[in-house]
Design a protein around this nucleic acid. Structure first.
Lengths: 106, 106
DNA sequence: GGCAGTGTCAAATAAAAATTGACAGATGTC
DNA sequence: GACATCTGTCAATTTTTATTTGACACTGCC
């Protein structure tokens, strides 16, 4: 009787949305209202709300604003977003990528 | 007579567009036509041309395709693109960014 | 001459990013 | 109680980005 194995190719762990870091760590630490933060960042209140609710992405420009605003490199924010995007894209394309051949010569 | 100093805050070196890596390294190494590559990747020929010409970005989905196609992690491609995007965003927002206050408490 | 490829263009679509205006509800304060 | 400010969410809209399609002139090759 051949045994079945489940092959795990990827950790399949969902990376955090940058909004989660902002919501759970940054905003509480700064003790600032969302409305005020949006004003300081120079974006609409709704955009910031959307990011905090993990419904809108941190764009490159937003990452630059956040970097200046909380004094840490913009790379942090865009890296978080990028990992999140990649994770979603992998799942979205899962069926289609199997049709793409792999060239090992690189 | 007070002397003037030029302050360099950032390396200001433009990161490469992922299209440059594809065009200079990957495609020559694989010895494949652009048209054929586009077919294998499942995207339009013009989109691939645009990326190779550094006029169109490597999206998250495109990074996944490229990762599968040339056997290296999709992270490489999206990291290249995001560094490029960030570099452009920093320059685009340079004037507006100075108006954003910095909170050091993070 | 016909086939495959190249690089670029314009037009069209589709999808994503961001703004504006509105709403009901919470909380504080004078 | 009325005012101001904030909250979270909604819908409509605008702007921007990503991608496709179709076309064009040109090149190289059997």
């Amino acid at each position: 009787m051949p045994r079945e194995y489940k092959v795990r190719t990827k950790p399949a762990m969902q990376p955090p949305h940058p909004g989660a870091i902002l919501r759970l760590d940054v905003v509480p630490a700064l003790r600032i209202s969302i409305a005020q933060a949006a004003r300081e960042l120079g974006v609409s209140r709704q955009l910031l709300h959307g990011i905090l609710a993990e419904k809108l992405p941190v764009s490159a420009e937003m990452a630059v604003r956040l970097g200046k605003w909380c004094g840490n490199d913009a790379h942090l924010w865009i890296a978080l977003q990028r990992d999140y995007d990649l994770w979603r894209a992998e799942r979205k394309l899962a069926s289609r990528i199997s049709g793409i051949p792999t060239h090992e010569a690189v």
